[in-house]
Design a binder for these strands. Structure first.
Length: 470
RNA sequence: GGUCCCAUCGUCUAGCUUGGCCUAGGACGGUGCCCUCUCAAGGCAUAAACACGGGUUCAAAUCCCGUUGGGACCA
């Protein structure tokens, strides 16, 4: 069998959305699994709606999620001459014709047909037109579509889907301004790029019979098709902006890890037994078109969050620490130019990652470790920084001043000696200390907090708390 | 309106091809318990589904037909 060649072909009319990423991911996985080629093609023939910003957003999004392409990006607007050439060929072979019907005429006829309860398709009258071309009308090019028989799509995911050719009309392949229509551009490109498998959303399933007919008319063997079901929102309606973030880059900004997003997305419509967590290597090894579900899937943000938390916990600490930096800066936790000690930052990540599901959350929780002095939660202070614990605090300060290594185990030992002396339980002392050190009632383990803060800040904060006790 | 697609716990899904191993499994979320210096994380347990109606068959989540519901495309 020939080498697999697949493509992802977004229109740059907006950001790269989640559904698009999943389509791209499945194509990419298939290509990698089959040791084939993954091509990126930008379908920018809709010039009114395509923007350079959108193109950039697509490229950035693809890079962020780690879907590298082997060929491209190829822009359709660079290929206009090729579509024209192919359309001219069809014209010359009598497989296409020029149509001079105006928008108004077509509209009127459509309404008439509807009134007669007939199919409102083009009646093909310009097919039979003879004589001179009407003046002042720039024609569109229409494809001569067979009116009998059936076209069967042997879909890799949906199975065989049969369409009556009588349903299809003579579709426009080139507009009056010379720009190819979507269906024509796709076919010409997929054919000349020797695409072997077209894996795309099932919103294109209905276009497929027309495309197969076009392939044949152009003298190409159609590729294999695989139509993926759509991703829906939790309310079972097609995923859109009102469901929250739908652009990949929004997920980046919200503190998600790309591997969490791809892992989440791969399980939306595909499975490998009961396995939920896949490294990208595993995905490539195990991916197959046979295990794709036919039914549409609802996007569940909570499961994505869980996976993100999982990857935050299990990911390489050095990498997580690096990824965290921009979030610390953005949250104003860290000054723009400041560069924290990397070993220390990794320790902070280890302490925080059990309790954060996103990098944004982690950056928030990191705040007390960067501030010179704590921002005290007044209610917590009132409740925990009472005169009753002052003697214990005083003892703790004395002990900590003597502690030679300011690290977890030594700190625990010192802390516990204070408990033994004062007769306080762990909880009775740890919670006030937590408030004194972080300003809040929630934090990593208290010994980790002290170690992370270091001797100086720990002692300063404890002393300040003693003052607050009045 | 026409054409096409889809239908298992709230959600993602396994099982459906080749009916019996399904008193329907896993995961997220929920609930409860354990662990515990807080919050998490973790562990254990638990509730929760074969859309409906007909067939076929000794036997159907699995095969067939219909209904209903959802979605897409075209208009």
């Amino acid at each position: 069998m020939n080498q697999v060649r697949v493509r992802f072909a977004p229109s740059p009319t907006g950001y790269l959305h989640i559904g698009g990423v999943r389509t791209a991911l499945f194509n990419w996985l298939f290509a990698r699994h089959e040791k084939g080629v993954f091509i990126l093609r930008i379908e920018d023939t809709d010039r009114a709606r395509s923007t350079p910003e959108a193109i950039q957003a697509i490229l950035d999004g693809m890079k962020w999620v780690g879907l590298g392409w082997d060929e491209g990006p190829i822009y359709q607007t660079d290929c206009l001459a090729i579509y024209k050439e192919q359309a001219d060929r069809l014209l010359a072979e009598g497989k296409a014709y020029l149509c001079y019907c105006t928008e108004e005429e077509l509209d009127a006829r459509r309404k008439e047909a509807l009134a007669r309860k007939e199919l409102p398709k083009y009646d093909g009258r310009c097919r039979r037109r003879s004589g001179a071309a009407p003046a002042g009308v720039s024609p569109v090019t229409r494809f001569v579509s067979p009116q009998d028989g059936q076209t069967i799509v042997h879909d890799l995911i949906k199975g065989d889907v049969t369409f009556d050719n009588a349903q299809l009309d003579d579709l426009v392949i080139v507009r009056s301004n010379g720009v190819p229509t979507y269906n024509f551009g796709v076919v010409v490109d997929d054919a000349r790029m020797a695409i072997t498998h077209v894996i795309r959303g099932d919103d294109h399933l209905n276009n497929t019979p027309r495309q197969i007919l076009l392939y044949r008319a152009l003298g190409y063997e159609p590729p294999q098709f695989g139509h993926l079901s759509m991703i829906l929102g939790m309310d079972k309606v097609k995923l859109s902006k009102r469901h929250g973030a739908t652009s990949v880059l929004e997920y980046q900004e919200a503190g998600y890890l790309p591997e969490a997003l791809t892992n989440y997305l791969v399980r939306l419509g595909w499975s490998h037994g009961d396995q939920e967590v896949f490294s990208s290597q595993e995905m490539i090894e195990k991916f197959s078109l046979e295990n794709i579900t036919r039914s549409p899937a609802a996007f569940n943000p909570e499961k994505l969050l869980w996976l993100n938390g999982h990857y935050l916990k299990t990911g390489d600490t050095k990498r997580v620490a690096e990824l965290l930096l921009p979030f610390l800066r953005k949250r104003g936790v860290l000054d723009g130019g400041a560069q924290p000690d990397s070993a220390w930052l990794e320790k902070l990540v280890v302490a925080l990652r059990e309790r954060a599901q996103t990098l944004v959350e982690m950056a928030d929780k990191a705040a007390p470790f960067f501030q010179e002095s704590v921002i005290m939660d007044q209610e917590a202070a009132k409740k925990f920084l009472t005169a009753a614990v002052r003697p214990a605090f005083a003892r703790l300060v004395a002990v900590l001043e003597q502690t030679s290594v300011f690290e977890h185990d030594a700190l625990e030992q010192g802390f516990k000696s204070v408990l033994a002396e004062t007769g306080l339980s762990m909880g009775k002392l740890a919670q006030p200390v937590r408030v004194a050190l972080t300003g809040t009632t929630v934090s990593p383990g208290i010994f980790d907090v002290m170690a992370l803060l270091g001797r100086e800040r720990t002692l300063a904060r404890l002393k300040k708390a003693i003052d607050l006790m009045g």
